[in-house]
Each structure stands twice: as C-alpha cells, then as structure tokens.
Amino acid sequence: MNIPRRARRRHSNAQAALETALVIPILLLLVCNFIALMLEISVQQQLDSAVTLAAESRFQATESSFDPPGTMCCPDARCCNGETGAQLQTGGIPTGCRYAAESFYGTMRSFGSLLTWHLQPLCTSGGDSRGAPSAPYPASPRGSEVSCDVGSVAPDGNAYPGYLDHALNPPSGLDVVICDATASLDFGDTPLAWGVFWTPTLHAHAEVLPPPFRQ
C-alpha cells in the first residue's frame, strides 16, 4: 500500500515522540534505582561500623559493673540519635550494655530520616550458636535500636551467661559478645520514591571476643 508522504512524516514524528516517551522514564527509573542501591550500600556499611564499635565497647566496662537505678543511656546529646531523641533507662543492666548503646547511637547519626528501626531489647543474656534463645535482662529497655548479648555477674552474685559460640574453641565453646541491629531503608520521603519501589531491610551483626587479658 502506498502511504501518502505527509502521513508518513506525521507517522515518523509520532514514532519519535513515542520512543522518547518510553526511553526517558526507563532511563530515570534506572538512575533512581542505581542511586538507591549506592545509598543502601553506604547505610549498610555505617550500620556495620556502628554495631562493631558497640560490641567492642562492651569490654570497656568490667563484667561485674551494673548501672545504678536511674541511669540513662545518652545523657549527652552528642551520643544520642538526635532525630529520634532516644533516651534509654539503663539502671539495673550491665554498664557494658550502656557503653554499647552509646557507641552505637554516637556512630549511627547519619541517614536517620531514611531508617525505620526494628526495636528490640537492649541487653540480653544466654543464647548460643546452636540456636538456644537469649533472654532479655529483667531491667533491660525494650525499645532499643541495637541489641547486645552479654554475660555479667550481678552485684547480688547472680551470674548471667553471655553468648556461647561453639564454632570457637569446640566443643565447649567460647563466651563472646554479639550485637545486632535491624532497620528498613525507606525511600518514601525522598525524591527517589518516584522510581524506587523496594524497601530493603538492613541487618548488621557483630561478634567480638573478649581481649586476652580478660579470658
């Protein structure tokens, strides 16, 4: 069939407009998702760093050191997450747990507006690498962004076991400190929400051995 020239020209223009209309959103979608992926990698690394420093900080307090009643984590605004205003009551739990929380909140300052935290008990004891569950200390705050499993000896002489890793020093295992934090990365309040339809859940886990002089 012979298409008239004017109609062919209009057809060609329409085809170009259609191509542009298809390609531009796909291009923007790719760029948005690439930026979101880079953001996710950066947040994950910061989370890993914060959890590692938190676990290491536990050893700066003695095993038998407990916070007196009324003690609060982050009394200094510099070590709290300013955006959530986290203030955790740590009276009656090992001082090492508070140190861990202070290190975590002090390090995890950036990206706060993008993260929705999965809150958990700050301080737990027990648990092992074979799947035995850990239990929170009776006085532990429940709504913390980081959770650490630590062993301690309370002032009344009651000993709380730490996390037993059987992969280290088998078969009896080795008492270690573990810390965990979980958060969802939400792009809803950013311009990236236009093209990013996934909400990744980020998790960081750190396991730290006691320094040799404490073993």
Partner: peptide
C-alpha cells in the same frame, strides 16, 4: 544529567565508604 548522576552516586558511595572505614 542521568549519566552524571549515576557516576556521582557511585563516587559518593566510594567516598562515604572510605570515610566510614577511616573514622571507625
């Protein structure tokens, strides 16, 4: 603009990653 944004996002991730590791 998209090309620059992609390159810049990659650069930013590398730089932020280096900063996180260094300050830690």
């Amino acid at each position: 603009l998209c090309l620059l944004a992609s390159i810049d996002a990659g650069l930013w991730a590398v730089q932020t990653s280096a900063e996180v590791a260094a300050v830690e």
